[in-house]
Design a protein around this nucleic acid. Structure first.
Length: 263
DNA sequence: ATGCCGGGCGAAGCCCGA
């Protein structure tokens, strides 16, 4: 019985964070990692430190903003970067690939879902449209009935117990009833929230703002998620949030979420 | 709550994030 470790992490600039990510890879040794908010162009992604640690890299980058990647100890095949209705969407927010394991496959996506604030702007409309596109794509890939992990920064607080102070976030684009309903529509296609399948506690956050002492006061929110197909959920053995990565020098404002599977 | 952080860009100050 082998263990497959799959993680997601919004690194908030891969250039600034590359040493910290490499250090984390050495410590945790995940098999597959979904990264978000690279803030660099594809050709500028620092592949060397990760290849030196035995990882293959698939990158969908963009200058200054957004950017997503997959790292994998196994080869990454059939890489795609578009969602239905992509049109002229110039924002690098989605990358998907197939990881070939012994006799089976894992389909993994790295998602950087739009923030959507303020709610009276076109950014919010873009977020909701993007979520509908993700839903349609999720429906299509779920039909393959394979191990599937839709991992990333969803910019969605799913419920009241995923935020330190619900009143402080009421009306925010991450927490409106409309946003949460759109997220549920995706989950209800048949996906499992990996963290909540393993840990029902309050105080399970993945993001703390840099400002206002949010980290020392533990004013966090849970917005980074691994959503699993039934085939993946059946093999899930654990899921944890790597809170320790919020401390130290020059941390990202997000921390990794790590899931383990028996394969 | 907004922009008190932090990062990108680019060389000061604005844009953006959640």
């Amino acid at each position: 019985m082998a263990t497959l470790t799959v993680a997601t992490w919004n690194v908030n600039s891969i250039k600034i964070r590359q040493d910290g990510v490499a250090d984390w890879l050495k410590t945790v040794a995940p098999d597959v990692v979904a990264l978000q908010e690279l803030k660099c162009e594809t050709k500028a992604f620092p592949v060397a430190p990760f290849e030196d640690l035995g990882y293959n890299c698939a990158v969908h980058g963009q200058k200054s903003y957004n950017g997503v990647a997959l790292l994998s100890k196994f080869p990454i095949e059939d890489v795609t970067t578009t969602l239905p209705g992509d049109g002229d969407d110039g924002q690098a927010r989605y990358i998907e690939g197939v990881i070939s394991l012994d006799g089976q496959a894992l389909r993994i996506a790295s998602i950087y879902l739009p923030n959507g604030n303020p709610v009276d702007s076109d950014k919010y409309a873009y977020k909701l449209v993007w979520m509908r596109r993700l839903k349609e794509h999720a429906r299509a890939v779920l039909a393959h009935e394979e191990m599937l992990v839709l991992a990333g920064d969803y910019n969605v607080i799913p419920s009241e117990r995923d935020v330190h102070d619900p009143e402080a976030w009421r009306g925010d684009a991450l927490f409106t009833l409309e946003t949460r309903r759109a997220f549920r529509e995706i989950v209800h296609l048949g996906l499992t929230d990996a963290l909540r399948a393993c840990d029902d506690a309050e105080d399970r956050y993945t993001f703390w703002d840099y400002q206002g002492g949010a980290w020392p006061k533990n004013h966090g929110i849970r917005i980074d998620h691994l959503l699993l197909s039934p085939e993946a959920a059946a093999r899930l053995t654990g899921c944890r949030i790597d809170r320790g990565r919020r401390g130290g020098e020059k941390p990202s404002d997000h921390v990794p979420v790590v899931a383990e599977f028996r394969i």
